[in-house]
């Protein structure tokens, strides 16, 4: 077994250090090393989006990134989306629109949607559907998710 690497990175604004094996993915590091289990595993091969996190401003499937690649990176995970006393408008919108059933895909959808709205504050339905095509949901049929994202965009625009 190769020696563990010492990694320094930033997660949700906090400086974090960890040791990881060269073969461990960022998803494994988040879940098993740092015990941040809000990031979910659905397929471990980059096809479901449940493990979506933001890395240096881009959404990535954390199962396709090595833990060692996060050296010096700026990461955002679901644990960093809400403030201690209030949910992000997207999270609130998901609740109000019943945009989750089992909820396992929800952290990935929220991070992917947040990244979209930060780049494009006023996307239409087609754009939302296209952007979220890398995130699978088996429960909802996406209808309420798309509505929740569009409604959150409106809320953010009024606030912004």
């Amino acid at each position: 077994m190769a020696k563990k690497a010492h990694i320094e990175t930033t997660i949700n604004g906090e400086q974090v250090e960890y040791l990881c094996e060269p073969r461990q993915s960022l998803l494994e590091v988040l879940r098993d090393v740092l015990e941040m289990t809000g990031t979910k595993e659905g397929c471990n091969d980059g096809n479901c989006g449940a493990c979506t996190v933001v890395m240096d401003g881009r959404i990535v499937n954390s199962c396709l990134v090595l833990g060692a690649e996060a050296e010096g990176a700026n990461l955002e995970t679901i644990e960093g989306v809400a403030t201690p006393d209030s949910l992000h408008p997207l999270q609130q919108s998901f609740l109000q629109n019943a945009a989750l059933q089992c909820g396992i895909c929800t952290p990935g959808f929220i991070l992917a949607s947040k990244a979209l709205l930060e780049m494009e504050p006023d996307p239409g339905e087609e754009r939302v559907r296209h952007w979220l095509a890398g995130n699978l949901c088996r429960c909802t049929g996406y209808d309420k998710i798309v509505k929740a994202v569009l409604e959150a965009a409106d809320v953010l625009e009024v606030k912004g």
């Binding site: 941040m36 289990t37 809000g38 990031t39 995970t77 679901i78 644990e79 989306v81 809400a82 949910l87 999270q91 998901f94 609740l95 989750l100 909820g103 929800t106 952290p107 929220i110």
Partner: peptide, 8 residues
Amino acid sequence: DGTEKVTG
């Protein structure tokens, strides 16, 4: 259970 589920 909504808040728990949208916050991970």
